[in-house]
C-alpha cells in the first residue's frame, strides 16, 4: 500500500503532466484524485489543489514564455478581464446554482473540442 504522501505525489505528478501540456486542466485531474484516492476532505481538496497548481502554473508559464513568441499586448485584456472576473466570481460564489453551468460548460467543451480536433 502506498502512503498518503506517495499518493499525493503521484496525483501531483499527473496534474503536472496535464497542466504543462494543455496549459489548463490540472485542477480537474487533481481534485478528484485528492478526494477519491488520497481520501482528502472535499473542502481541503479544493483548497489544497489551488496551493499545488499555483507553483505548477508558474513553472509551466516560465517555459511557455521562454520557448514561444509570447505577445504580451494580446495577452493583456485577457489577464485584466480574468482578474476582475475571478474577484467578482469569488464575491458572489454560492449564490448561483452551478449544476446548469456545469452542463452548459460540458456542451461548450465538447463543441469546441470537436472543432479543435477537426481543425
Amino acid at each position: 500500500m502506498l502512503s498518503d504522501k506517495a499518493k499525493s505525489a503521484l496525483a501531483g505528478a499527473a496534474a503536472g503532466v496535464v497542466n504543462g501540456f494543455f496549459g489548463a486542466g490540472g485542477g480537474m485531474v487533481l481534485v478528484p484524485l485528492l478526494i477519491g484516492w488520497v481520501k482528502m476532505d472535499q473542502r481541503k481538496a479544493f483548497a489544497s489543489s489551488v496551493f499545488i497548481i499555483l507553483p505548477l502554473c508558474a513553472v509551466s508559464a516560465a517555459v511557455y514564455l521562454l520557448r514561444t513568441e509570447f505577445d504580451f499586448l494580446r495577452a493583456l485584456p485577457y489577464l485584466i478581464g480574468g482578474l476582475a472576473g475571478g474577484f467578482i466570481g469569488g464575491r458572489i460564489f454560492g449564490k448561483v446554482p452551478t449544476k446548469l453551468l456545469h452542463r452548459i460548460f460540458g456542451i461548450l467543451l465538447i463543441i469546441g473540442g470537436v472543432r479543435a480536433i477537426a481543425s
Partner: peptide, 18 residues
C-alpha cells in the same frame, strides 16, 4: 501532502511544457 504533490508535479509539468 500538498508539498509532496508540488515537488512531483513541478518536475512533470516542466517536462510536459517542454
Amino acid at each position: 501532502l500538498a508539498l509532496c504533490a508540488v515537488a512531483a508535479g513541478a518536475v512533470t509539468t516542466a517536462l510536459s511544457s517542454l
